Amino acid sequence: MNAVILRERPYIIPLIRGKEPTYIEQNNELGRVMWRLIKALLFLIILAGGGFVAYAYVGPLFFPADFAAPSQEVTQPVTLDTN
């Protein structure tokens, strides 16, 4: 790619107290950001699961038509082989 050789991907990370961050500090910062995203995703998944459980328990009280099974009488003739 245009004769540019990079050993690692360049990231824009602000300078901390005027010194340039080391590779380990950059990875630590990236790791903290990833951990925050993972925690937020887990929180949203747990919140959605709780919402589904609450809807399953409370839903029939507020929306009985949505939870009622359709009922109708079905009659079909049955022929039995009797030997």
Rank of each mutant, 00 (worst) to 15 (best):
G51R: 02
E20K: 15
R17D: 15
N2A: 14
L6S: 11
I45V: 15
L61C: 01
V78Q: 09
N83S: 15
M1W: 14
A40S: 08
F62E: 06
I13H: 06
S71W: 02
F67V: 06
N2E: 12
A65N: 12
P70Y: 09
L61M: 12
F63P: 00
D81C: 01
D81L: 08
Q76H: 02
Y11D: 08
L42A: 11
L15T: 14
F63T: 06
N27E: 12
L6Q: 10
T75L: 14
R9K: 15
G50M: 06
R36N: 11
G18Y: 08
I38E: 10
G59E: 03
A54D: 04
G59R: 09
K19F: 05
E25V: 07
P64W: 03
Q26T: 13
E20M: 13
E25L: 07
D81M: 02
V53T: 13
I12R: 12
I13Q: 05
F62G: 00
P14Y: 05
G31Q: 06
A54Y: 14
I45G: 01
G49F: 12
I5N: 13
Y55G: 01
P14N: 13
N2R: 08
I12S: 12
V33D: 04
D81R: 05
D81F: 04
F67C: 03
E25F: 08
L42H: 03
V74L: 10
P60Y: 05
F52W: 10
P21A: 11
D66M: 04
M34N: 05
T79A: 14
P14Q: 14
M1K: 05
Y55V: 02
L80I: 15
P77Q: 07
N28E: 10
A48F: 10
T22P: 01
A3T: 10
A69P: 00
L41F: 01
R32E: 02
Q26W: 00
V33K: 11
L37A: 14
I38C: 07
T82P: 00
E25T: 09
L37N: 07
N83A: 15
L42T: 02
K19V: 14
P70I: 09
L30S: 12
L15P: 02
N83P: 08
F62L: 15
V74E: 02
Q76F: 09
D81T: 09
P77G: 01
G50W: 00
L41M: 03
Y11Q: 11
L15W: 08
E25H: 03
Q72K: 13
M34E: 13
P10E: 10
T75G: 00
L37S: 08
A56D: 11
Q26F: 01
G51Y: 09
R9A: 14
Q26P: 00
Q26N: 07
P64H: 05
I46P: 00
N2S: 09
V53L: 11
A68K: 15
A65S: 14
G51W: 06
R32V: 04
G49A: 15
Y11T: 11
Y57D: 01
L30Q: 13
M34I: 13
I13V: 15
G51N: 03
Q76V: 15
Q72G: 03
L30V: 12
Y23V: 13
L37T: 05
P10G: 04
I12C: 04
N83E: 06
M34D: 07
R7H: 14
E20C: 08
I5P: 03
V53F: 10
L44M: 14
